[in-house]
Simulated scan of single mutants.
Amino acid sequence: MPWITYLPGASPLVLDSPHSGTAYPEDFRHACDLKTLRRAEDTHVEKLYDFAPALGVAWIEAHFPRSYLDANRNTTEVDTGLLDGPWPMEVATDPVVLSKVRLGKGLIWRATDEGLPIYARKLGVEEVLARIRNCWTPYHAALAQAIESAHARHGYSIHINCHSMPAVASSHATDFPGEVHPDFVVGNRDHSTSSEALAQRVCSHLRARGYQVALNHPYKGVELVRRHSDPAGHRHSLQLEINRKLYMDEQTLEITSGFDDLKASLRSLVELLLATDPRVL
């Protein structure tokens, strides 16, 4: 099966969902039970934005699960202790990056958000390289193409990297275990992946609809916004985290009554961004 969906758009806006995949590959061979693994998903995020392609918005979606390969990590973020042989590619040395790898949240997850081991085996080097070829590379290529096409048509692009977050941070999920999350977190890596004005416009719009919104804490944005942004060249990327309590039961993964209101708010945000030229903010 194809591991990503790419729907080209005609507008300056590009949306992507790297963590909502629910197709678990046969070669995963995980020891952790599926119910526990599924709590790592940004479950139903693709449904929250399913209106977007009809508005001319480009859409990229991963079908592989985040715990199999995290497209929002660099290929250097490899936990070499997971492997049965020497890793042939570059490995990250940045302490900030390595803090996530130590939590078990690198390119290939070692542990769940609760710290439970995912594998009872070593992973083959070629096995991990194949995951990069089949999942990471086509995902990033599709996103790059969508952003380049939007920018070529309009002279600017706005990219929203779509995520969800638990109501309360798990023990091994972030550097802030136990933190109670707001309704939304907008991230642009301290204004390095988008203009501050664009980030503030998104925050203001959501606050005006009654939501609690934080900017760059505890999620600043990771590889997808870092790699595919260039605000000085009018390529703006923002990460948008939605609190799962707004639309789903975190234990059963069932959609709740708040789903439709949240979806309407997201549609209003997309419509705002379609009418926004960040060059004149």
Rank of each mutant, 00 (worst) to 15 (best):
M1W: 08
W3K: 14
W3N: 09
I4W: 07
Y6M: 07
Y6S: 08
A10P: 03
S11P: 14
S11H: 13
L13M: 08
V14C: 02
V14K: 07
V14Q: 05
D16V: 09
D16A: 06
D16C: 12
S20I: 07
T22F: 05
T22G: 00
R29W: 05
D33C: 11
T36H: 06
R38C: 09
A40N: 13
T43N: 09
H44R: 10
V45K: 13
V45P: 10
E46S: 05
L48K: 14
A52D: 12
A52I: 11
P53M: 13
A54K: 15
L55S: 06
G56F: 03
H63A: 10
H63D: 10
F64T: 14
R66T: 06
N74A: 09
T75W: 00
T76Q: 12
E77F: 02
G81T: 14
L83Q: 11
G85N: 13
W87F: 04
W87P: 04
V91L: 07
P95S: 01
P95L: 01
S99D: 12
K100N: 10
V101M: 11
V101Y: 01
I108W: 00
R110W: 02
A111D: 15
P117D: 09
I118D: 04
V125Y: 07
V125A: 03
V125C: 06
V125L: 10
E126K: 13
R133N: 07
C135E: 08
P138R: 11
Y139Q: 09
H140Q: 14
L143D: 08
E148P: 00
A150Q: 11
H151N: 13
A152P: 15
I158H: 02
H159G: 05
H159T: 09
I160V: 15
H163I: 10
P166E: 08
P166I: 05
A167N: 14
V168F: 06
V168Y: 09
S171A: 12
T174F: 01
D175W: 02
P177R: 07
P177I: 06
F184P: 11
F184E: 13
V185S: 09
N188K: 04
D190W: 08
D190Y: 06
H191I: 11
S195W: 07
L198V: 06
V202W: 05
C203F: 01
S204L: 14
H205N: 13
L206K: 04
R207T: 09
A208V: 05
A214R: 15
P218S: 01
K220H: 05
G221Q: 11
V222D: 12
V222N: 12
E223F: 05
L224W: 04
V225K: 03
V225A: 00
R227G: 00
R227W: 03
H228Y: 10
H228Q: 12
S229W: 09
P231A: 08
H234M: 08
H234D: 14
R235C: 01
Q239T: 01
N243D: 15
R244M: 06
D249N: 15
E250I: 05
L253S: 02
L253I: 04
L253Q: 11
E254G: 01
T256L: 04
S257C: 03
F259L: 10
D260I: 12
D260E: 15
A264F: 06
S268P: 04
L273P: 03
L274N: 06
P278S: 02
P278E: 07
V280H: 05
L281F: 13
L281D: 15
